[in-house]
Amino acid sequence: MDKKSYILQLLKYFVMAVIVGIIVGAIDALFGRVLIAISDFRTIHYQYLLPFLPIAGLVITAMYYAFSKASLKGMKLVFEAGQQKTDAIPLLLIPLVMIGTWLTHLFGGSAGREGVAVQIGATLSHAIGRKFKFPENGRLMLVIGMAAGFGGLFQTPLSATFFAIEVIVIGKMDYEALLPALASAYTAAFTSHSLGLEKFSVVMKDTVNLSGTKTIAAVICLGIIFGLTGRLFSFSLSKLKAFMGEKIMNQFLRIGFMAIPLAVLLFAVHGSRYSGLGTNLISAGFTGQTIYGYDWILKLLFTIFTLAIGFQGGEVTPLFSIGTSLGVILGGLFGLPPMLCAALGYAAVFGSATNTLIAPIMIGLEVFGGANMVLFVIVCAIAYGVNGDLSIYAQEKL
């Protein structure tokens, strides 16, 4: 390809990225604002809603079976499209995953939201790429869509860009996708914010001096523990999903029956403290409220169980809450500022569980500012190395 043709093609992708960003950002705003309203309603009325979690699970599964059974694959379907194992991602996936996630959160399941946003972005961008017969559609258009989905929901376009690139291509940075992905992520973030979706950010005043041996050792320990936590999450989720699929092959029976003990436990343990996204734990960690020493492990277990039996949502926001609550506890143990350790955990556990390196560092920059960037680089790099190659996206990497 000559230089002129390359520039023309890049311009086409840039224009398409802006279009995708506007559409996905608008959908993210709708999805995110409804989800926040649902979460607030559930927090107040959980005692009336949690008992119906098994019924909600049956409704979600029936919905998929009635309208698009293939969409049950979720993120796996996205990666299959990128690997050209499937021709198209059903557009029905978008409303199904949105409604399914709303129901999961309304009735108290422990799940995230980024999986929905990423699937929305990937589905739309893939469909547009097929419509206009873009070359390299399966890979590049998926990166554009995933960056838009993540960026529009969390309004962290830099981390969204690198998240999409790192998740979809193994062992290398796909620089060809960088500019279009940045365009789609920034456009989606601007669009969703303009439509009333707020960004989460924390003014981080705490810092530490890395000149002392004791402090350096503590920071290294933080990276190792956060890395092991992310590895535990991704390993356990993969194994439990496989176990549930083998032992209870009927999806209706699996979600309907197993949601009964899930609802009972969520109700009994601190009155739905571990339901939903986990933003209550994140807020507690950064405002000096009570964080229990077991918050991180219970949120981890409840999220894994909720997703393994078939409820809809994502993993990233629960990972943020797991890292935050664990960081607060470790800060006290190591004599470091708890809020700073919470911020490091917020980024590093996410990075470990998703098997990404640059994305969590960018999360640190965009959510907590640049004052502690050296710490974020060190801790996230150690966590990434400790994890190895495990990821919550079992079908990832093209």
Rank of each mutant, 00 (worst) to 15 (best):
G230I: 09
K3R: 12
G100R: 09
K73P: 00
F14C: 15
R231V: 06
S236Q: 04
G276Q: 06
A284V: 02
A122Y: 02
T324L: 04
G121S: 06
L178E: 13
R231A: 11
E366F: 07
V15P: 00
T306H: 00
L153S: 04
G276C: 07
L158Q: 03
K131H: 13
I23K: 08
G57P: 06
S125G: 07
S283Y: 13
K397Y: 14
G112E: 04
L326M: 13
T279P: 01
I23L: 15
L266C: 09
V203A: 14
L72R: 13
V59W: 02
N355I: 12
S236M: 10
L390K: 12
A181P: 09
Y292P: 00
L398M: 13
G227C: 11
A177W: 12
G369K: 01
G276H: 07
G369Q: 07
L8P: 01
T161H: 11
D28F: 00
N372A: 03
G145L: 10
T306W: 00
G351F: 09
R254T: 03
I55W: 00
A160V: 12
T229I: 09
V18G: 15
T187E: 08
N250L: 02
L326C: 03
E396N: 15
V167P: 04
A17C: 08
G74M: 02
V169R: 06
I297N: 01
Y46R: 03
D295S: 10
H193Y: 07
A181Y: 06
G285K: 09
I55M: 12
I19P: 04
V219S: 00
N280C: 01
G323N: 09
M16V: 15
Y393W: 11
M249G: 09
